[in-house]
Computed example of a mutant assay.
Amino acid sequence: MINAWKSFIQSQGAILEDERVQHFGNPAIERRAAAQGNVLVDLSELSLIRARGADTQNFLNGQFSNDLRSLDATHNQLSSWCSPKGRMLVIFRLFRRGDDTLLQLPAALLETTLKRLKMFVMRAKVTLDPVNDELVGFGISGPDAEKLLHDATGFAPGSVDGCETRDEITIARLPGPHPRFEIIAATDVATKLWNSLKAKATPVGPSAWAWLDIMAGIPSVHPETSDVFVPQMANLEIVGGVNFKKGCYPGQEIVARMQYLGKLKQRMYRAHVENDALPRPGDAIFAPDFPGQSAGTVVAAQPAPDNGFDLLAVIQISSAEAGKLHHGSENGPRLSLQNLPYPVAPATRAE
C-alpha cells in the first residue's frame, strides 16, 4: 500500500492489521450498509500489474482464457490464466488505461503470478511491472453510486463491464446487487475523489466488496485454490471470462474439450451457512452421495449482513441437486443453496 494512501485511509477511520485494511470501526454496520446503501471500499487487497509494449496484446492473448483483442478503453474484462492441465492459476480483471493494459488480481497472488508470467515473455516486446506504488483503487456501490460518481467526476460507465478513463481517472462498472464501480487513479486524485464521495457513502472494509462479488456470482482464485478449478467449474464462461473461439493458450485444449465434448460434473453455487467461523477458500463441502470424500470446495466466503456466512462453492451437480450439503465434515453445518443472478447448468456446446 502506498504510504500516502495508507495515511489518508487511516485518517478516514480505517483499522489496519499487517498493512491490510480490516474495517472502519464497526464491521456489522458496514456489512448492512453494503447490502442496502451507498458504500466506499478501499481495494488495497487487490494488486495491479501493468503490461505495456508493442507485443502486449498478442502476448496476453496467448496466455489468457479470454480474447484480449476485444478489450478496449470502453470495456473491462475477466480472464483466467490456466496451467497446462486447464486449471486456473489466477483470475484477472483487465482494464485499458491509455496505452497500458492493467491486470488486477489478489495481492496474495501478485508475487508468484508476476514471476511466472515473466518467464513466458522471452523475446516479446512487453514489460510487466507492479504499479501498487503508483496507482490506488477503491470502489463505490449502492443505489445512488452512478449519480454520485457523475456528480463528482462528470462520468460513469452506463453498462456492466463498461470502462472509461478521463483526467487520469479510470472507472469500471462491475456487476452487483446495486450499481457498482471501481476507481483507479493516482493517490492525490483518488484522495480528492474519496473526499468528494464520502459525505453520501459509508466507508466499509474490503470484506464488503468481496461479499458483493459473492452476491454477483463472480468467482475468485486464492492461494488455497490456485490450480484447482477448470474455468467452467467456477462459472467463468457464464460471467464472460472465457472465449472459445480465440485460439491457443495454456490449458486451452482441456478447457475446450470440457465445453465441446465433456460432461461437466461440478458447478459453482452460492450458499449460506450458519457457522462459528468464517469458511475459508479450499474448505471441503460434503454430501451423502459422496460418502467419505469431498463433494465440493469453497471458492470464497464472507460474513452475511445479518448473520452467518454467504459463500461461493464449486459442488458436484448431483450433490447440489440433492440439496444435502455440509461444510467442513459430513456432520458439519448445513448449507442452504441460494439463487445466483444467472442460471447454472452443465456446460453445453458453445454456439
Rank of each mutant, 00 (worst) to 15 (best):
94 L>V: 07
94 L>E: 02
95 F>W: 14
95 F>V: 01
97 R>H: 10
97 R>G: 00
98 G>N: 06
99 D>K: 13
100 D>T: 05
104 Q>M: 12
106 P>L: 03
106 P>A: 05
108 A>I: 03
108 A>R: 09
108 A>S: 13
109 L>W: 03
114 L>A: 02
115 K>S: 03
116 R>P: 00
117 L>H: 00
118 K>G: 00
119 M>Q: 11
120 F>W: 12
121 V>E: 05
123 R>A: 05
124 A>E: 13
125 K>F: 09
125 K>D: 15
129 D>R: 15
130 P>Y: 11
131 V>M: 10
133 D>C: 07
136 V>Y: 12
137 G>S: 15
137 G>R: 15
138 F>C: 02
139 G>I: 11
139 G>S: 11
140 I>E: 01
143 P>A: 09
146 E>Q: 15
147 K>N: 13
148 L>F: 11
152 A>F: 12
153 T>N: 10
155 F>T: 04
157 P>M: 14
157 P>W: 13
158 G>I: 11
159 S>V: 15
159 S>Q: 15
161 D>I: 05
164 E>C: 09
165 T>W: 13
165 T>D: 08
167 D>M: 07
168 E>T: 12
171 I>P: 03
171 I>W: 10
174 L>R: 12
174 L>A: 06
175 P>T: 06
178 H>R: 04
180 R>V: 02
181 F>A: 00
